[in-house]
């Protein structure tokens, strides 16, 4: 087993000091006020599972940092299709890059990669487990809007049982003393006990959108995944109850916001896009400076 090098594997391991440091670094990247890394470094983007948005935002962030980028996308293009194991592919990429970004359909693959790589690993989504960089983007967008990220009221409408983005968000909120966290989902899509048992705050669950409190600050929405339901009828019967329309948005307080890690299916009415509350495209754009900050920080730490 190789040496374990720093990386971003789980939101549970990102403490407040680290998060604040990455946020102020992102602020600087947005202003263009960061000294470039002083020598030629490289990153491997190892995407064993298809992705467009996460991949392109990492790629863009790497290019802005002046890194050499090598990329491998989905099982099909890679040697894994020819029978090479995940471990061997990670070792090979670690052999020629200073940093490896991994997306895989296997839970825990980023943790395993960090044990065998010898290079810093960034978890860009591992199965249904975690997506820690997404949670940094979420909180950064919230902080940017409110000028703070502590003591806010959240309503999360999603498939929390299967979503790595909401797992990492819930873990990340441990750092921000939320005033209240309301979870809205069908009963069978509630977050797993293995996730909620690690939270330092209480969550209140309800099945209907009536559970969105009148004083909500952040409405976080993510699509219900059709393939998770037993049958299509069951899906059709619930999907309408989680559709955020302009009426829901209008009932929210003036300064509140709506986030969605995207892509959206039909959870968010397009009529909301033009309102001040719609921050999901700002959120998507923040992917680049946050990922610049993460890669910059990890690469500056290496010897």
């Amino acid at each position: 087993m190789g040496v374990i090098v720093a990386g971003v594997i789980s939101a549970l391991e990102l403490d407040r000091a680290m998060v604040d440091k990455l946020f102020s670094l992102s602020d600087k990247f947005k202003r263009g006020a960061v000294k470039p890394l002083d020598r030629s470094l490289s990153v491997a983007l190892a995407f064993f599972e298809p992705s467009t948005r996460t991949f392109s935002s990492f790629e863009m962030a790497a290019m802005k940092l002046g890194l050499s980028v090598t990329s491998m996308r989905s099982d099909k293009d890679s040697s894994m299709a020819k029978g090479e194991t995940f471990a061997d592919t990670v070792r090979m990429l670690s052999g020629y890059a200073d940093l490896v970004v991994i997306r895989s359909r296997f839970d825990g693959s980023a943790r395993f990669a960090s044990e065998i790589s010898g290079k810093a690993i960034i978890n860009a989504g591992d199965g249904q487990n975690e997506h820690p960089t997404q949670s940094l983007i979420d909180m950064y967008t919230i902080r940017e809007h409110f000028g703070k990220a502590d003591n806010l009221t959240y309503a999360i409408v999603a498939d929390l049982r299967h979503s790595r983005a909401t797992n990492s968000l819930l873990y990340m909120l441990n750092n921000f003393r939320p005033k209240a966290v309301h979870i809205i989902s069908p009963r069978q899509l509630k977050p797993l006990e293995q996730v909620t048992s690690r939270l330092k705050y209480e969550c209140e669950w309800s099945e209907s959108l009536a559970g969105v409190p009148g004083d909500v600050d952040v409405l976080y929405v993510n699509r219900l995944q059709k393939e998770r339901f037993q049958d299509e009828m069951e899906y059709n019967s619930v999907k309408g109850s989680y559709h955020i329309d302009i009426g829901v948005a209008e009932r929210m307080p003036d300064d509140s916001i709506i986030l969605d890690p995207l892509p959206r299916v039909d959870e968010l009415d397009r009529a909301i896009d033009g309102t001040d509350k719609a921050k999901y495209f700002v959120q998507a754009a923040n992917g680049v400076p946050i990922r610049q900050a993460i890669m910059y920080d990890l690469l500056s730490k290496r010897r």
Binding site: S104, D107, S109, I116, G127
Partner: peptide
């Protein structure tokens, strides 16, 4: 968990 890396890589 069938999706766990320990069930999907011989070295894990």
């Amino acid at each position: 968990n069938g999706r766990c890396i320990t069930n999907n890589d011989p070295e894990a």
